[in-house]
Design a protein around this nucleic acid. Structure first.
Lengths: 189, 189
DNA sequence: TTTAAACGTTGATCTATGACAATGTTTTTT
DNA sequence: AAAAAACATTGTCATAGATCAACGTTTAAA
């Protein structure tokens, strides 16, 4: 149940088995159906999710009803509506399961308690932030001045599993292109 | 000399005057000319810069020689090529002064020493990362599915000083549109 | 102060990609 | 297993914005 999480934590830092136990006790396992909303648009986010199985998606709705995919998370990754989680403002985005999931949930209170209490968990949080920042930066740069084909090549190079796990529609809305364009340029590869 | 930095630190957390002195002693004041390169494309970044006066820009060069502006920093802000600073890889971007500057420089070694030594500085670093992440996210979302006019409105709303401080050319390359388009849509406002 | 270079603006094209629609396929529900 | 819904693909057409060029203006260098 906690093996993936254990791997995640111990890969980044050293920590005793006893401390690990304490950390695990804050993570509650839950199971979800497909297309289940974990965080609603208007709510304030108070949980962090770790994915044991399945995948999640952060997205918004445009005024015309179409979706804008912001982020995808898969097995072994942490995921939440981070800006809302950090600053306790309404999420202004949806977090939804893409498929049936097995998740480990930790409350915001417990999460920051662990950050304060365990240096290993504090570095884990800093690493999450650092990586989140770097990933976001790279994504900006892959958008700036790149055409649809270059964006597609970028995602294939940087997140090779991505196109295999999500629908064309979701992928297109993540890359900021229309599904038809994505369909067309895929045949150009 | 250190008043802006003091304001930055004390706004986020409480810290003794003595500790502040120790922190300040790690920051070395320097003056630069306009268009001075602080971090070169191929180098590994080992400094963090705090701006007392002036402004900095992070950018890359495209294959065709045009520039791609990534980030602008002004008075009272920290700035560096963060991915390189964090992971000690070649910067793959330029950090350059836009105008004559007065900066406070801290080495990477000293920076992380302060993070380890002073809880106040540790939270400052976490806050830099959190804000960096949130800002980057917002920028991605302002790109996704927005046309040139909407991007311009977004930057005016979210960084009102921006257009007053940087050239049209730089602003356009930041927004991912051509200078002519920026010029045209500005007259539509 | 003069000269040169960089920049901003505006007009005339050109092009990548969006929008819409038709068709076939896959997935989900009953 | 059958029906319905969502999705992928591909064609045609429309358009936002790129590119190129000309010109005036501002900024920097000599």
């Amino acid at each position: 149940m906690y093996s993936l999480l254990k791997k995640y934590i111990t890969e980044q830092s050293t920590i005793s088995e006893a401390d690990l136990k304490l950390i695990f006790s804050c993570f509650k396992p839950i199971e979800t159906k497909r297309n289940e909303i974990l965080i609603d648009f208007d709510t304030i986010c108070n949980n962090y999710y770790f994915i044991n199985k399945g995948s999640l998606r952060l997205y918004t709705l445009n005024t015309d009803g179409t979706e804008n995919s912001r982020y995808f998370a898969f097995e072994g990754m942490f995921c939440t509506a981070l800006p809302s989680f950090i600053d306790q403002k309404p999420a202004a985005e949806y977090l939804k399961t893409i498929e049936k999931c097995e998740l480990l949930v930790i409350s915001r209170t417990d999460f920051y308690k662990l950050v304060d209490q365990f240096p290993a968990f504090d570095s884990l949080y800093k690493r999450i932030l650092e990586l989140g920042f770097i990933t976001a930066q790279q994504r900006i740069y892959s958008f700036q001045g790149n055409n649809a084909l270059e964006k597609l090549k970028w995602i294939i190079k940087n997140q090779p599993h991505f196109l295999l796990r999500v629908s064309n529609k979701m992928a297109a809305s993540y890359l900021g292109i229309s599904p038809s364009t994505l369909s067309r340029i895929k045949s150009q590869l």
